[in-house]
Computed example of a mutant assay.
Amino acid sequence: MPVNAAGARILVVEDEPVINQAVTDRLRGSGYEVVQAWDGPEAVEQFTDTAPDLVVLDVMLPGFDGHEVCRRIQAARPVPVLMLTARDDEADILVGLGVGADDYLTKPFRMRELVARVGALLRRVERAAELATRTTTADLGDLRVDSASRRVWVADAEVHLTPTEFDLLACLAASPGVVLTRENLYAEVWGWPGASGTRTVDSHVKALRAKIGAERVRTVHGVGYALETGGAA
């Protein structure tokens, strides 16, 4: 069901009181309803009890970490997750994307950017709900992308993608063989035009390649990416 971004409920999970409260105050000031949690177990409990529309999730948490929280909540009910990490390390970021995170921010971050990314993720949920009403299927060699059911098959075997990975693939599949710039992809998939999200796009492309095959997404250095139109090499 489409999310009313202005009144969405957001779960903020952060064990540092100053950061948790600052994020909470800023989101409430932007018109969101906010629920707070301070550790891994409480995050999962609050997710179950309050059914948030989006989760802002720190990686380093007491109890169990944000990756485990993300894994558990995504298994229960898919929801947009914005991860906060103190480590600007690609391997750490890819772990987060692998368990279902949609985007990430590296600490320290600007509150204005956090609010913008939250809004963009919520708008993307609305767009996904609209796309689900359309019947669009792309058959590219042995790769099949069904936008109506949001399902993907490679050589007749279904592949599980996170919501962001699917939207990225669907965007590339809509223009097979055409090179899309990182900026174009960030604007279309993340819904944030005019912003620089090259690291975010690159990390998600790497995670997508690990699932559908690296040879299917071609890199044009200094420009962007294109989805190959044939089967696997």
Rank of each mutant, 00 (worst) to 15 (best):
E188I: 00
A187F: 06
N184E: 14
W192Q: 14
T164D: 12
L161R: 03
L143F: 04
A120P: 07
A173Q: 10
C171A: 15
A157Q: 14
A132D: 01
L161M: 03
W190F: 15
R117P: 12
L169S: 09
S196Q: 12
P176T: 04
G119N: 14
A116N: 05
V118I: 08
E188K: 01
T137I: 15
T136C: 12
S196D: 15
R123V: 01
A207Q: 10
P193Y: 08
A170S: 13
S175A: 14
L131Y: 06
V205D: 14
E183Q: 13
A173H: 05
E188A: 08
V154F: 01
V201Y: 10
R112Y: 02
E215Q: 12
T136Y: 09
L143N: 04
E130S: 06
M111L: 15
T133I: 03
V125T: 12
A132I: 02
L180D: 00
G191S: 10
A210H: 03
D156V: 03
P176K: 05
A174T: 04
F166L: 06
G119R: 09
V205W: 12
G177M: 05
V217F: 11
V201A: 10
E215L: 02
D167P: 13
L169H: 10
E165F: 01
W153T: 15
L131F: 05
P163E: 10
L168K: 06
V189M: 13
V159K: 01
V145D: 10
S203E: 03
A116V: 06
R117D: 10
R209T: 01
E113R: 13
V189S: 10
S203P: 00
L180S: 11
M111T: 08
A155M: 02
T200Q: 12
R150F: 03
A207Y: 03
V125Q: 14
T136A: 14
V189D: 12
W153Q: 09
L180E: 05
E113D: 13
Y186D: 07
V154H: 02
C171L: 13
